[in-house]
Write a protein that binds this DNA or RNA. Structure first.
Lengths: 187, 187
DNA sequence: TCCTCCATGTAAAAGGTTACATGATTTG
DNA sequence: CAAATCATGTAACCTTTTACATGGAGGA
């Protein structure tokens, strides 16, 4: 059985792990609470059908609904869906962190309730280290570039990239501190 | 005649506006200097063929090359390609800036040499303002969320989003200062 | 009943990813 | 010239975007 592939599908699994909800609810969550993900019906509903076909999710309230009816359906994770979600969450952050940042942040958002706190903390360490290494490398390239040319938009754009990566490094360190502090026994 | 649609195509036009180069060069640039864009042959070469079919780019060195030959080809912008690039660059930043940030940053990177400095500065102002408004709105949502729950990864992930947007606001202000300073008459 | 949102569904077109294939060019 | 690397090309698959369509629920 194929494992869910697209990030959108994992985002759906993650949201459903918090609480069962409908496709419409998911779309609203994508539009407001979650960065990066599509809230268009043409992506969400087909993704739900794919997940249902693979038994990762199921309809929570099948009783009333004639064939081919519409109306609201509430989806929930199946055991296999939960397992797929956890397997995705437990992957290491990896060295190519800055390429996948958006996906890594999404994974992080769903770690509570699904993986132990220790896994989350390890993830933050790996992420912080990988991003710090990347930032250093970018800084070196920046130094070489900036010595060859005057200030220009290409250079400034590159700088924005670096600043962004460094911002995430600081965030990761702070987040680690906050999660490993007094509130450690949240779950 | 259809205007180039995908961001990848505009990224190619932007790189070619700096200097004529081959598909392979473009792929290397995507892999190293530019965030966000695909460096896979399956995306770059078809995009080049599309742009060539629409007369946005042309082969700079057609002389030697038998039919169906391979080997390096150097592409350059046509007048129509340059016009399409400039039209893309001149669009206002818009209010949905935080959704399109990666595309907006790409546009910014190519503004030098292609649009007047005044356009670039206006763009930075619009971008900064739009992102600042967005950050404020996110901060409000964050306050509401954080009062309802303990620290958790969902909340921290949301916070990373905010911090990132605020970082871009600061960057935009600083970039504006640097471009409007003494080095104003660069072009 | 009519009108307006809510909620879901679908089809067509387009683009990107992956994996592979093949033609050039360089290096020893 | 053989091997390695450079440079381009291509096909299958999958997903997203866009635009539209349809069914239900509630209010006037």
């Amino acid at each position: 059985m194929k494992t869910p592939a697209s990030t959108l599908e994992f985002a759906i699994l993650g949201l459903l792990s918090r609480q069962p909800q409908s496709g419409y609810d998911l779309r609203k969550a994508f539009a407001t609470n979650l960065r990066y993900y599509s809230d268009s019906p043409g992506s969400v509903y087909p993704a739900l059908r794919r997940l249902e076909a693979r038994r990762r999710i199921g309809v929570a309230d099948p009783p009333r609904r004639k064939a081919n009816s519409r109306g609201r359906q509430t989806f929930r994770l199946t055991d296999s869906g939960k397992a797929a979600l956890v397997a995705w969450l437990e992957q290491p952050a990896g060295e190519d962190a800055s390429r996948n940042l958006s996906e890594l942040m999404l994974r992080f958002a769903f770690m509570d309730l699904n993986v132990p706190r220790s896994t989350t903390l390890r993830f933050l360490n790996e992420l912080g280290d990988a991003l710090a290494a990347r930032a250093k490398e970018l800084r070196q390239r920046y130094a070489a570039m900036s010595s060859r040319m005057k200030v220009n938009t290409g250079l400034l754009s590159f700088e924005a990239w670096i600043v962004s990566v460094e911002g995430y490094v600081r965030w990761a360190r702070r987040a680690h501190g906050r999660l490993s502090g007094k509130s450690q026994r949240v779950s």
